[in-house]
Design a protein around this nucleic acid. Structure first.
Lengths: 147, 147
DNA sequence: CTGGATCCTCCTAGATACTG
DNA sequence: CAGTATCTAGGAGGATCCAG
C-alpha cells in the first residue's frame, strides 16, 4: 500500500463533498451568502430600489464586472428583480423581491449580532495576540540564559 | 480632464472602503463568516466538542492546513476553545464558547431559511435559465431566416 | 496525533478597454 | 447609461515533508 492513500482518500472525500453540495440546499445558499458583494448589494437594496450606477456608487470599490456578476446571480435566484426602462439612455432598476427581503432580514440579524458581540470578539483577539506574544518571549527567554 | 478619472475615483473609493472596513464590525464579522470552512466547523462543533482528527474526518474534503487555519482564526476570535491533553499521543479538543454557540444559532437560522426557501430559489433558477435559453433561441432565429 | 513550514498551482477578483 | 470581453497579478488553498 503506497503512501499516496491519504491524499487519495481526501480527494475522494472532496468529490463526495461536492456531490453532497449539489444535494444540500443549506450549503448552496451558504455559498451564495459567502460572496462578500452579495451582502452589500442586498443591504444597499433593503432601503429601496436602485439603479445600476447608483449601486456602483453606493457600494464603494466594486468594479462593473463584479457588480453585474453579483446582480445576475441574485436575479437568477429570485432574490432581486431587474427592470429595464427603454428610455433614451437606458435605465435599469434593481429591487428586492419578497424572498430577497426575507434574506435581507436575516443579514440584518447577522449585522446585529456582529455589532452586539464586537467588543467580545475584539477583546478575545487582543487576549489571544498578547498570549502569543508572551509565549514567544518566554520561549526566547527559556533558551538563551541557560545555554 | 483625462479618462483616468473614473479609475482613480474607484481607487479612492476602494481605499475609503478599506478604511470603512476597519471601523465597521459588521463587515469584519461578515468576512469571517464568508469563509466556507468556518460555517462547517461551527456546525460540526455545535453538537459538542470534537478532536482535531474527528473534525478532519467529519468535514469532508478539508486539508489539515485549512482546518488548522480555520480553527486558529476561530480561537483567536474567542468563538472556540482549544484544549490540549498531554497524553502519550497528544490529544486536542475543540469546543464552542458561549459566544461561538450564539453564532452557531445564527447559522442555524440561516440554514433554516435556506431549507425553507430552497424550493422558491430553485424554481426561480429554472425560470431564469429557461428564459435565457428561449431568449438565445429567439436571438438566433431572428437573424437566420431573414439574411 | 497534531500540527508547522514550504512550495506550487489554479482560480478569480479586479483593472482596462470597448460596445449598444 | 449599462453593461461585455479580455488579460493579468495575487492570494487562497492543496501537496508534501518534517517536528514535537
Amino acid at each position: 500500500m503506497p503512501t499516496t492513500t491519504a491524499a487519495q482518500r481526501r480527494e475522494q472525500a472532496r468529490l463526495a463533498y461536492d456531490a453532497f453540495l449539489r444535494d444540500c440546499p443549506t450549503n448552496q445558499l451558504l455559498g451564495r451568502l459567502s460572496d462578500k458583494w452579495v451582502s452589500l448589494v442586498v443591504a444597499a437594496l433593503s432601503s429601496g430600489s436602485l439603479r445600476y450606477s447608483d449601486l456602483g456608487r453606493r457600494i464603494a470599490g466594486v468594479s462593473p464586472k463584479m457588480l453585474t456578476q453579483t446582480l445576475r446571480g441574485l436575479e437568477r435566484d429570485g432574490l432581486i428583480t431587474r427592470t429595464v426602462t427603454p428610455s433614451v439612455p437606458v435605465r435599469v432598476d434593481y429591487a428586492l423581491t419578497p424572498l430577497g427581503l426575507s434574506l435581507a432580514r436575516l443579514l440584518t440579524a447577522v449585522k446585529d449580532w456582529a455589532e452586539t458581540h464586537f467588543d467580545e470578539v475584539h477583546a478575545a483577539r487582543d487576549r489571544y495576540d498578547a498570549q502569543i506574544a508572551t509565549a514567544d518571549g518566554a520561549e526566547a527567554a527559556k533558551g538563551s540564559p541557560n545555554s
